[in-house]
Design a binder for these strands. Sequence first.
DNA 1: ACCTGAACACCGTTCAAGT
DNA 2: ACCTGAACACCGTTCAAGT
Lengths: 188, 188
Amino acid sequence: MTNTRADILAAARGILAEHSLADLTMRRLATDLGVRPNALYWHFPNKQSMLAALAENILATIPGPAPDIDWATDVHRLATDMRAALLAVPDSAEVVSSAWASGLAERGMETTIVDVAVAGGLPPQVAAGLATAICQLTIGLTIEEQTRTQMERLGVTGPSGRLFTDEFEAALEVILDGARFRATSADT
Amino acid sequence: MTNTRADILAAARGILAEHSLADLTMRRLATDLGVRPNALYWHFPNKQSMLAALAENILATIPGPAPDIDWATDVHRLATDMRAALLAVPDSAEVVSSAWASGLAERGMETTIVDVAVAGGLPPQVAAGLATAICQLTIGLTIEEQTRTQMERLGVTGPSGRLFTDEFEAALEVILDGARFRATSADT
DNA sequence: ACCTGAACACCGTTCAAGT
DNA sequence: ACCTGAACACCGTTCAAGT
């Protein structure tokens, strides 16, 4: 009956998949693992750290930079992959948001975008602005989408009528156009 | 000893100002108002609704569109004002984030930005993308900044070394450049 | 109109102890 | 190395009743 960190994170994903972030309590997690609540504190110092590990776990599936493609195309792909990875696990955007804010989670996606943009010739400051804008957009909009999904799932509200994919694409294009504009104006 | 909704929101702001979002419980709020916890449920159906009202309250101070200025200048000003309004109340960005996600709060700032951009001649879809990108950036980055501030306040961590104002400006410029680029390319 | 009393069904976390 | 027993100090929310 001895669990590993990976077991715990898998069980946490299961709770998000079948229920919600509100149901992801240390007590419930322990019950699902067939263990007492305090047993989890051998593996993690507190709930916040567990959630930080979960955030990294959820984003770990995203493929890294693809060499030999246009930087803007690759950044667009990274943003889309990130959104897809979040949408695959209910309420995960909220988990990632607080994990990033807490400073306990690695933010590999942000540094990857910076790297790709800099390798593509963007000035570092523009690359940093681009990465910030894209990550905040992706997380923020996905929080709204997943919250909405959960409310519909619980039947407390009907469909929002919002087209989140379109909203995401529109905002992403605005951001990428801004970065492209800076790239070309820096060349001349 | 009878309280109004405004009294409750003022007390809630007081808790954020002197403590943190973690301390903003219905029980503590009630205690500060000299009332029993369940008394609050006469004014709000639940905590979520109280937080939605608080979110609107915090953003209500931001001046509306300024006529006769360049749309991009005004959008830049709106974003800066929004950030300032959030920074004035500790942990308020997190409150606004969940309030917007819950669908219980008005999102006047987003519609204001869309209006200003459309009045400035931007295509509606670009204006929508601009508003989404700017609001998500402002809220998301301010969540990180305020979380960091709270952790320093509690002494659990030292200064981050991040220059949030610079990060905000850099990302904001990228987004605005993208919108400007779309505006001019639509003209031609 | 606004509040209290009393209760229900939960939380995260700690500490000593077990195997 | 990993878990249990038992406890502490909390939560949000409901319902009937008071004034």
